Simulated scan of single mutants.
Amino acid sequence: MSAITSFLRPDFTWPRPMGSSICKSTPKVPSSPGKLRLRAWGIVHEALYYISEWYCACFGIQFDANIIQLPFGLVLKWTDRTSLEEAAAMHMARAAGMPIPKVLCCGEHPNAPYNRNFSILMTRLPGSPLENSADTLLVESEDPWLFELRECVIAMRRWTSPHSAEICSAIGTSIRSPRVPGHIMGPFADENEFNDYLLSTASGHGFDTTAEYIKALEQANEIRNYPHRITFTHGDLKAHNILVGDDGHLSGFLDWESAGWYPEYWDFTTAMRYGTNSWWFQVASWIGGDQYRRELKCDIALNSLTVDSYIAF
């Protein structure tokens, strides 16, 4: 009886250990499900939403309308940022051997309020999320997760895009990022078009003088002087998206909603532009970000110029 009830508990998980090596060749891009199938699963997911309210009440856990907890080690992600592109990126990363939740099915919700138009039913992984701090990174003292995370990031950067647009999602469409108005952009034919878009909302609102604004604009535009490879990118490489098991190994790599094909610096500057010299800044720098210090200065300037355009979303 206890074995049966363990499947129902909110701490039941489906471990996905790291592969012996992460595939360095591009995983196959999954085919997109048909509209009828997406809508049918959407109806099922809407029913699961209400089941989760009852389930959470039974186990005394807080109900989250975005990350919906379910029995049998399942989680339903249903936010205004969830998309088919995220599900495709998860399929690719899991196929490469990374510890990624297994996508079971996707649902479409054409009439849902607040732009919650898509949902993903997936397995729950074990482990605890990392937390940033002001500590000093001691590489030789860290558990295996640090080296395993670096292996995942390095492997992704060796994949090659099958799409004609250089900067796009895993399936060649728009990419989602909390760093732009409406949190969606592209696809873009090349890096110049990408940079033009990022700077299109530049404003002097946050500067005391015109001289400060011009200086920041010049610094942000300096990114154009550095050509970059286009690599597969997680898009939100933050500490809270990394799960570590009790054994110290990487047990989960989460939240692929911003994943896609970006200039090679994007993952690192996104991770490093806040909390300079914090513990996570040092992690991202050690993984590979240290080679993009010039780009980081440009990215920080870009953020100061454009943050007003997306911070309210």
Score class of each variant (00 low, 15 high):
72 F>D: 06
68 I>G: 00
62 Q>D: 08
53 E>R: 14
44 V>Y: 03
76 L>Q: 02
52 S>D: 06
74 L>T: 01
52 S>T: 07
44 V>S: 04
59 F>Q: 12
51 I>W: 06
46 E>S: 07
69 Q>W: 01
60 G>A: 15
66 N>D: 09
66 N>E: 15
52 S>P: 09
68 I>L: 03
59 F>E: 05
56 C>Q: 01
51 I>R: 13
45 H>G: 03
65 A>K: 15
42 G>C: 03
61 I>V: 09
51 I>M: 13
74 L>M: 07
42 G>M: 02
57 A>E: 15
72 F>H: 10
42 G>T: 03
73 G>P: 09
75 V>E: 02
67 I>Q: 12
53 E>D: 14
66 N>Q: 11
54 W>V: 11
77 K>W: 01
76 L>E: 01
67 I>M: 09
68 I>Q: 00
53 E>M: 08
54 W>I: 10
64 D>P: 05
76 L>M: 03
68 I>H: 01
59 F>P: 04
62 Q>K: 12
50 Y>T: 04
66 N>F: 12
62 Q>P: 06
75 V>A: 13
75 V>Q: 06
45 H>S: 02
48 L>I: 02
75 V>W: 00
51 I>F: 10
71 P>N: 06
73 G>T: 09
70 L>Q: 06
52 S>H: 08
44 V>N: 01
71 P>F: 06
74 L>F: 02
61 I>T: 14
46 E>P: 00
73 G>F: 13
71 P>M: 10
53 E>I: 07
47 A>K: 11
66 N>Y: 15
48 L>T: 01
73 G>V: 14
59 F>D: 05
51 I>K: 07
58 C>V: 10
59 F>S: 05
57 A>Y: 09
65 A>W: 03
72 F>V: 07
72 F>C: 15
54 W>Q: 12
60 G>S: 12
49 Y>D: 08
48 L>M: 14
75 V>M: 10
71 P>R: 05
76 L>F: 03
51 I>H: 08
55 Y>M: 02
66 N>R: 14
65 A>C: 08
48 L>F: 06
68 I>Y: 00
72 F>S: 05
61 I>A: 05
69 Q>D: 04
69 Q>H: 12
68 I>S: 02
48 L>E: 00
71 P>Q: 08
60 G>D: 06
71 P>T: 06
68 I>M: 02
47 A>L: 14
61 I>C: 13
63 F>G: 11
56 C>M: 03
70 L>G: 08
53 E>K: 13
45 H>R: 02
72 F>P: 08
50 Y>L: 10
61 I>L: 11
42 G>H: 01
50 Y>V: 04
69 Q>E: 09
54 W>N: 09
50 Y>W: 10
65 A>D: 14
67 I>R: 10
73 G>Q: 07
72 F>N: 11
54 W>K: 13
68 I>V: 11
64 D>S: 11
51 I>E: 04
67 I>S: 15
